[in-house]
């Protein structure tokens, strides 16, 4: 099977969907001639022309609002917000408009826009190093996707473009360069379905996006210690596939949740609460969460590394959980 980078897989998804459906068009800041700030859309302007790859001014609210209006009118916009930090400038259009059009107007209009955006860190400072997926996952009416591999990225983006509902598609900037197997033949990855990235018996590690890779590395080390980890990649945050998580917990009876974001009121909090509601009797130890330190992201490299959760944090969490194995 050919290997592609995460970035190439996304570009393939966009290209295939644009070839398949002429209603699909791209819009965003610097996505055309410049090829996108993270180079995902490189070459697409040349192939599809400026009617379908539209450079916009730096105007996030207008980008999302325009995508919403175009989706209501029957087009399939894929709008790019350069990073999720800037989505806050469009939060009204995302939360008050895009997410509510279908419900508030009694099902008369759908708004099947895809909003692609990047999240990550790397000595960029506090305003450029946030995730914020929780804000949007909180809102009924939106679907929120955060893939971890090139395979999932391509299949989920294609599914998002074909989805009849609005989808926020979050790409981790530190994953753009990773490589993974992506088949030549057409496939979709369904939205709302978690994936067991590594089967195991002893402990369930729930993760998503880059933290899946951190958890995989930790799992290899733990294997040497005789601890067999099962890794559940959420892939979609809303709708959350809690069934796959609960099924895993019923088998392993131990849970660690890893998120690259502040823990308070977060994805881990939500998953832990659902496990408490649906699998309490199967737990042999308290659920443990691993997340970012609760500070704005510092600029200095050492400080930044200290704030972001890493393999050592996952190892410590798993050991603390399985140490209490009965």
């Amino acid at each position: 099977m050919p290997e592609l980078t995460f970035r190439e897989a996304l570009r393939q998804a966009l290209r295939e969907e644009m070839l398949r459906d002429e209603r699909v068009f791209l819009m965003g800041e610097d996505i055309g001639a410049y090829g996108g700030s993270y180079a995902v859309t490189r070459g697409l302007l040349e192939e599809f022309g400026e009617k379908r790859v539209k450079d916009t001014p730096i105007a996030e609210a207008a980008i999302v609002g325009l995508a919403t209006g175009a989706a209501m009118g029957g087009l399939k916009p894929v709008a790019e917000l350069m990073t999720i930090n800037f989505s806050l400038l469009a939060a009204d259009q995302i939360i008050n408009h895009l997410a509510k059009i279908y419900y508030m107007f009694g099902g008369q209009f759908t708004a099947p826009a895809v909003i692609r955006t990047a999240a990550g860190w790397g000595q960029l400072g506090a305003t450029h190093s946030q995730f914020l997926e929780v804000i949007y996952s909180h809102v009924p009416g939106l679907k929120v996707v955060m893939p971890s591999t090139p395979y999932d990225a391509k299949g989920l983006l294609k599914a998002a473009i074909r989805d009849p509902d609005p989808v926020l598609f979050i790409e981790h900037t530190l994953l753009y360069g990773i490589r993974g197997e992506v088949p030549d033949e057409e496939y979709l990855v369904p939205i709302g379905l978690a994936d067991v990235k590594r089967p195991g018996r002893d402990v369930t590690i729930v993760a998503y996006a880059r933290m899946v890779h951190v958890a995989m590395n930790a799992a290899r080390e733990l294997e040497a210690e005789g601890v067999d980890c099962e890794i559940v990649d959420l892939r979609t945050l809303r709708p959350l596939d809690i069934e796959t998580v609960v099924e895993s917990v019923k088998k392993t009876n131990h849970v660690v949740i890893v998120e690259e974001d502040w823990k308070s009121f977060g994805v881990g909090a939500e998953v832990a609460a659902r496990i408490a509601e649906q699998a309490f009797d199967y737990l042999d130890a308290p659920v443990v969460r691993v997340g970012m330190l609760e500070v704005p992201m510092p600029y200095n490299r050492n400080l930044e590394r200290h704030v972001v959760p890493d393999e050592a944090d996952v190892l410590a969490a798993v050991r603390s959980v399985v140490g209490s194995r009965v």
């Binding site: 325009l66 919403t68 209006g69 175009a70």
Partner: peptide, 17 residues
Amino acid sequence: GGGGPLACGSGLTAKVT
């Protein structure tokens, strides 16, 4: 002020189609 961007969206739909 919410309607301005939406109006651009329906405007673009007309232009594209």
